[in-house]
Design a protein around this nucleic acid. Structure first.
Length: 958
RNA sequence: GGGCACGUAGCUCAGCGGGAGAGCACUACCUUGACAUGGUAGGGGUCACAGGUUCGAUCCCUGUCGUGCCCA
């Protein structure tokens, strides 16, 4: 029994339990053992996060694919899980500690702090998972993974050790993006360039051997800089090799103001003669470009800023080397001054000595940390790097060859551009929460990379015995006795970039490095569904790691969806306060409505500006379906055993079977092509504008009429078409459809596992051979080329039924329209006269008398040779339908109406004729197009003739 | 500066070489036995602008203006 009102919250709560209890989403169900697998790995959300609109969209689309393929009979694995999100999570917990005025991370120490983070993960880790369940995500929840699980950690260590062994991971001292607030290195991708209004300072650097005089330009060279405080670390000045202004100065030295260091003027292309003064100061330890210039000219690197962004001068050997007397006093004065305060003070000091020529306002891009928001400091440290350039090569080739393809295709360009210019990937982070790097250091700092500490110590002992640092005897003792080797080697404190473990997600979640049945069966995965913002962070790295370790691409299709924005097109962000919480929408309108909205708006290549009114509209759509199902129930509609829609006798029933088959094809093809919006639009139209608006209405007289074969068949067909709707709609609106499926009939099983109305074809041997030869997409069932369906009922067509029902619809629509135009009240019934009707119409009409009378509010339908005098005359598919309204209608108004109609016909005739008169059109246009134009002309001419006749009759009547 | 999108009804968006579409909003009428979270009918657009290609351009090309995003 269907409840009177559609209450999404009740249904959704109940269906979640039903699915969970029946293990509906479990991969590898026994009944699917022989089925072709279909795999998607979820983009793992941050374990401490909560569901935002982007997740809602992302997971809705994945769920549509998974539910669709599950219904098509495949063994679906939608692999769920969460990401430990190193920096983000550590920040959350640290903030908590601060708010609760508890000991800080450093005060409590690494071990205690990590315990604390795990505790927080245990408390909040279920939040997002439960939210995904509320959305209806049909993941195999029994397989949930976490990037810091034991198994996944094992994969991480293995990958690190192997890449290190192969020389693809290495340690290097170079400039990194340093976050002075979080006190860690971050990767290029985590840096956001932000436009900042700053200044360009023009500084005078005195030339060696000349007496500095601010009035004498030959006594100094002017350099322009945006960061005057880094001048303390300058080790050169660069000018362009072809810049004639400075040619004779190249090779000479300048004396660094305030510091007294002697530095060289070098010629380098990096200096842009158009910019600033054409001369730039070179600070290799604090600027990426300067670092390169320094390398080219063998300039020293002097770090003058510490990890917290303060000047670091006292006891700084690099800084103090070769400085004149008195330099240490200056160092003490500025030591530990914050970089921005130092900027001000140094400029003041320079000004007081006349070293500042001028200051210009200057807008430029300044790097900021995406998490901390603080200005990133290029900082010289030892970090671990991945040789991304080498790993990128196969990843580029795989997309070039089409083994993996992007949908929409234009993202491939973005992918190639980035991959072809890829930089070494800095993977070490000075954090505590994450995978600790499996590297140990011996007493002299030598690195031993190994999967376990035992392994590392054995390598180390072997090495140091060989090096005669320890004796063989000592080595043996230390190997045997844990206490004796205590502190001999120490583990690298750093952890890995979160994205390092995410990069392994498509195979680590399946149990790799163990050779599990899941790895065999579900790798490579079929589709990856994600937003463009993580193509670099995640997609590219999965491609690299997948190809390197599995020798196969991780997925054959990468579907890139849009960003969800607010109604005005602004990116949703907490700081702007324009965030729409998907859970609020679910509470208010139901998960089905939200899902349908997102799917309907997910047109390729376009951002989604979410308007709540759309969600409301689709909630109404769900209500409509609910009520239509109630109607079917009230009329005892049920599908009898062995019912075959294609064998229906009644035209109306054949028509809905025809329309249903058409919709099935449309929806199926659209989902296969990732055109979610088209699929949603197609099913929406079918449910509302075909099934509800016409089929059910046209069926009412039969259902309310006397019992008999026609009524039996109609009851069956109403229920059958409803079931087809439930199936087609299920991937989009799983809750309401599953509920209706359950309550409308005795079922063999869940709708989630019911067969899709249109089955994919098994590839033929020829197709398989073709596939092997082409070495193309590895997934025959989703490859468009091979998706030649075996139709069951979906190839059913009945043009005759379509024509007949089309006539009924046109007739009713036109009568309604003219009634409204003539202001005939709904309560007034009118008669209908079919004038000069064809044999076909005379045969058809009696079948629809009840329906037409009911829907067009008629008292009677009759035939006549010609329309009665003073009647309103309509042209329906070329024949006259007359409403004798003498006395009721305004004759003048009717004449105006007819004139307008004639005008339209004239316009059509004119358009068609001008085209047909054009020789070039006849010569060049396709034959069908020309023929179509002729038909249009004939139809319009006929229409006009009839209308003129009608007008004539009207005149006679008055 | 380079790249990628996008300017279509009041709003949010589809469409895309052969007569402009949806939802919401709006107007009028309707509580008819699934549904007022509804029904019926209707108004509303030189498809940003200017050139070009074509028998034919909202659609393809070029340019201009405007908007957004990504990378330097």
């Amino acid at each position: 029994m269907i409840e009177k009102n559609y209450q999404p919250a009740d249904i959704e709560a109940r269906m979640s339990v039903v699915w969970e209890d029946s293990l509906a989403f479990k991969a590898g169900r026994p009944d699917r053992r022989d089925a072709v697998p279909f795999t998607i790995v979820i983009p793992p959300p941050n374990v401490t996060g909560s569901l935002h609109m982007g997740h809602a969209l992302n997971n809705t689309l994945q769920d549509i694919l998974c539910r669709f393929e599950r219904m098509r009979g495949r063994d679906v694995l939608w692999q769920p899980g969460t990401d430990h999100a190193g920096i983000a999570t550590q920040m959350v917990v640290e903030r908590q500690l601060m708010e609760r005025q508890q000991p800080s991370r450093r005060e409590m120490g690494r071990e205690k702090f990590l315990e604390r983070v795990w505790q927080w993960k245990a408390e909040s880790g279920d939040t997002i998972i439960n939210q995904l369940k509320r959305l209806g995500a049909s993941c195999d929840w029994s397989r949930e993974r976490f990037t810091m699980d034991e198994g996944l950690s094992k994969a991480v260590v293995k990958v690190f050790v192997e890449l290190h062994r192969d020389g693809l991971i290495y340690k290097d001292k170079r400039l990194v993006n340093w976050d002075t607030k979080l006190l860690t290195a971050i990767s290029d991708l985590e840096v956001q360039q932000t436009e900042v209004k700053g200044h360009l300072w023009y500084l005078r650097y005195p030339i060696e051997g000349k007496t500095f005089n601010p009035e004498d330009p030959s006594s100094f060279i002017v350099v322009a800089t945006t960061r005057p405080e880094t001048m303390l670390g300058d080790t050169g000045v660069a000018v362009h090799p072809e810049d004639e202004r400075y040619l004779k100065l190249v090779g000479k030295n300048v004396i660094l103001p305030l510091v007294g260091r002697k530095i060289q003027i070098v010629a380098d292309d990096y200096s842009d003669p158009e910019k600033g003064s054409g001369a730039v100061k070179i600070t290799p330890a604090h600027d990426f470009n300067d670092f390169e210039v320094g390398n080219r000219h063998g300039l020293r690197r002097i770090s003058v800023i510490d990890r917290e962004g303060c000047l670091d001068l006292v006891d700084n050997e690099d800084y103090l080397r070769e400085l004149p007397e008195g330099a240490s006093q200056f160092a003490e004065e500025f030591h530990k001054v914050d970089r921005f305060a130092a900027r001000k003070r140094i400029v003041e000091r320079l000004e007081s000595f006349g070293f500042v020529e001028r200051i210009e306002p200057h807008t430029h891009m300044v790097p900021h940390g995406d998490r901390s928001g603080t200005v990133i400091e290029p900082y010289l440290t030892d970090q671990w790097y991945v040789d991304a350039k080498t790993l990128a090569k196969p990843a580029i080739a795989a997309v070039r060859s089409g083994e993996t393809s992007f949908v929409p295709k234009n993202w491939e360009k973005t992918y190639f551009d980035w991959m072809e210019n890829i930089q070494p990937w800095c993977i070490s982070r000075q954090l505590w929460w994450g995978h600790q790097i499996p590297a140990w250091y011996g007493p002299d700092g030598k690195v031993f990379v190994a999967e376990t500490e035992e392994e590392a110590i054995s390598h180390a002992l072997g090495y140091y015995v060989e090096q005669e640092v320890i004796t063989a005897e000592q080595g043996r003792e230390m190997a045997l006795d844990r206490n004796k080797r205590e502190g001999f080697i120490t583990r690298d404190e750093d952890v890995l970039d979160t994205w390092f473990s995410s990069a392994l997600w498509p195979f680590s979640t399946l149990g790799w490095p163990d050779d599990t049945p899941e790895v065999q069966r579900y790798y490579p995965t079929n589709a990856l569904v994600t937003g463009f913002d993580i193509i670099f962070f995640w997609v590219a790295r999965m491609m690299m790691m997948g190809l390197h370790f599995m020798k196969e691409v991780p997925f054959s299709t990468i579907y890139i969806h849009a960003l969800v924005r607010d109604e005005k097109g602004a990116k949703m962000s907490k700081s702007k306060g324009n965030v729409i919480d998907p859970l609020n929408l679910i509470d208010e309108y139901g998960a089905d409505a939200l899902r349908f909205t997102l799917a309907a708006m997910a047109a390729q290549g376009r951002d989604i500006k979410l308007a709540t009114s759309r969600v409301e509209g689709y909630r109404n759509f769900a209500t409509k379906l609910w009520n239509a199902s109630r109607f079917a129930e009230m009329n005892h509609c049920a599908v009898p055993d062995g019912f075959e829609p294609a064998k229906a006798k009644e035209t109306l029933n054949r028509w809905i079977a025809h329309e249903s088959a058409h919709t099935t094809r449309e929806v199926t093809e659209a989902i296969e092509a990732y055109r979610f919006n088209d699929a949603a639009g197609s099913i929406y139209r079918f449910v509302w504008n075909v099934y509800c608006d016409w089929y059910v209405e046209l069926a009412k007289p039969v259902l309310l009429g006397p019992d008999g074969p026609a009524k039996d068949e109609t009851r069956a067909m109403v229920a059958w078409a409803r079931d087809e709707i439930l199936k087609l709609l299920h991937p989009f609106m799983p809750f309401i459809t599953e509920e209706l499926w359950e309550v409308t009939a005795q079922r063999d099983g869940l709708l989630a596992l019911a067969p899709w109305p249109l089955k994919p074809a098994e590839p033929t041997p020829e197709q398989l051979a073709m596939l092997a030869a082409a070495a193309g997409p590895t997934d025959p069932l989703v490859s468009p080329m091979l998706a030649m369906p075996i139709f069951d009922h979906a190839d059913f067509t009945d043009p005759k039924a379509e024509a007949e029902i089309g006539w009924v619809i046109d007739l009713v629509t036109q009568i309604r329209s003219v009634r409204a135009e003539m202001n005939i009240p709904p309560a007034t019934l009118t008669a209908l006269v079919l004038a000069g009707a064809s044999a076909e119409t005379r045969e058809r009409a009696p079948r629809w008398t009840d329906v037409i009378k009911r829907m067009a509010r008629l008292s009677d339908i009759s035939f006549a040779d010609r329309a009665p005098d003073g009647a309103v005359q309509l042209l329906v598919r070329g024949e006259v339908a007359a409403l004798p309204l003498k006395g009721v209608i305004d004759v003048a108004a009717e004449r105006t109406r007819l004139d307008k109609e004639i005008g339209k016909a004239d316009a059509d005739i004119k358009r068609a004729e001008s085209k047909l008169a054009n020789e070039k059109f006849i010569a060049n246009a396709a034959e069908e197009v020309v023929e179509e134009e002729r038909e249009k002309r004939e139809a319009a001419l006929a229409r006009k003739a009839k209308l003129l006749e009608a007008l004539e009759r009207l005149k006679q009547a008055t």
